[in-house]
Design a protein around this nucleic acid. Sequence first.
RNA 1: GCUGGCGUAGCUCAGCCGGUAGAGCAAUUGAUUCGUAAUCAAUAGGUCGGGGGUUCGAGUCCCCCCGCCAGCUCCA
Length: 612
Amino acid sequence: MDRIPCRCDQFGWNRENLVPCGLRFFIFPRKERMTVEQNMAAINQEEILRHTTAHIMAQAVLRLWPGTKIAIGPVIKNGFYYDFDLEHRFTPEDLEKIEEEMRKIIAEDLPIVREEISNAAAVALFKAENQDYKLELLEELDETVSIYRQGEFVDLCRGPHLERTSQVKHFKLQSIAGAYWRGDAQRQMLQRIYGTAFLKKEDLKEHLRLLEEAAKRDHRVLGRQLDLFSIQDEGPGFPFFHPKGMVLRNELEAYWREEHRKRGYVEIKTPIMLHEELWHRSGHWDNYKENMYFSTIDEQTFAIKPMNCPGAMLMYKRKLHSYRDLPIRMAEMGLVHRHELSGTLHGLMRIRAFTQDDAHIFMLPSQIQEEIIGVIDFVADVYKVFGFKYHVELSTKPENAIGDDAVWEQATEALRQALEAKGLDYVVNEGDGAFYGPKIDFHLEDSLGRTWQCATIQLDFAMPERFDLVYIDENNERKRPIMLHRVIYGALERFIAILTEHTAGAFPTWLAPVQVQVIPVSDDYVAYAQEVADRLFAAGIRVEVDRRDEKMGKKIREAQLQQIPYMLIVGQREQESGRVAVRHRRRGDLGALEVEEFLQQIQAEIAEKRNS
RNA sequence: GCUGGCGUAGCUCAGCCGGUAGAGCAAUUGAUUCGUAAUCAAUAGGUCGGGGGUUCGAGUCCCCCCGCCAGCUCCA
């Protein structure tokens, strides 16, 4: 399956209308390769289809529950939704009823008619319809608005739409959720129904299959099945890492450490808890207090760190630095705690205590570009090892920025030039930077085509200022260094979650919690199995012997389900020849090898961090 | 935090109109000694998320709390 990223500047049209829409980024699965134009046209058609399907859904809901107030029903990535306000609470069974009613509306083959009317006329119309939300929307709209009618249903809508309801064929309603009117927690909570629709039946099936596949790979499910981690009621958002999960962490950290060592980083560890005063100085008290945990020690207030930077600032300030010392690259696997809203917690993806693979680089203004390129290359190297594709986004100065324009200009330009120098394509998010500086985000794409923002490089003008960081330049004058924050994995816990879903639990051998399972054919060969295991263990391989009194087939099945890369079957033949019968979790029976031969092969695979 | 749904054995789930809990897998024990994805049998296992209430009687009904799941910018 190909995924073609493409941008859409036009919403598409039905007959007479050509309506612009905002710039958006799509990654869309297609079975066959198409030209960008064909792909764009297909996406536009799909969007129109989904928008029309949303209307049909609203119509169905109004038929089933007359008096329902309808809010908005836009197209979203891979589908659509519509928000409703009614007394009745939707249940999953209702979705089937609504789908059934939708099929009736489709069978009625109603023509979909666009009308342009004055805002005032629309107000009169929707007042008569008792559609308060539409009235509120109208307050912000132009003098002339468009409405769409199909049968008895009428909706305020800029369109475009299909011409007849019968053109909608392949759709599915997916879920019900609460959503605030206009996303504002202070306002009315509405009931939202999500659904999707496709032009082709196969595309709908493929989409639903992908969702099922994603559910099977859910790291929360695999995390339990593979015994990697757990989250218990006693610590919501505070994960327990089990022995097997710790292997992943430790391997990822060891690799990370080695790569940092090669690139001239030093490693530090700053305290989890620091005095309240520090957080006033850093600005976190003003901007981040709601998300922080506090504790009192000897009548003084201490905060548990939500970020590592203030600690790194103190570390830098411990001595006076010469321009000759820069750049200083200070890395820290920093455990941070953040009080995330209870409703947003999600497995290891969103937790309240996690480990950032942080680094702070202190440098001269002249070193900005080189350092940024260094990090960009670093990210590329690391993601390549895991087989992740990725794309890059550049975020520029926001409204509430601090620092003067010239510095912003210089910093943004440095980021831009670094990206150009590397020949990287990137998307620009105007005004999406942090208040203290512009940033580059890396969004990696997993095996199901989902994207995750992980690595980020952020230039920061605020911290060096607030902490009065200095270095002595060649004229013996005090100067302000430039600082950048960066992470590569992002958060170790989240990266493990992404990796689990990406690999469906089949971690590459260098990461696999158990690399080799030795399976004696029967009790008689347990001693030989142990001998083989001891040899591998001595060579540093993570190996276990399945000495249970079970049939071989069962042991193989369970080792397969645990996604153990290699199973070594040993029975009489192997014992007599000093060999092992090698079975790989994906490639199956690979035949017999001398123990030393197998050891060499697996060691090479581990050393090269091969993805297999 | 908010809305809705959910919480029964380690896991997945059943349990009607209220009448003091059940299956499969896992576990334990025994039999079996087996050649590339599940051997057979027996046994054990639960303050039904926690607390309060209604009732002769609550897993089941009501209230409060905790936790989990889906979602809460994607602007007619």
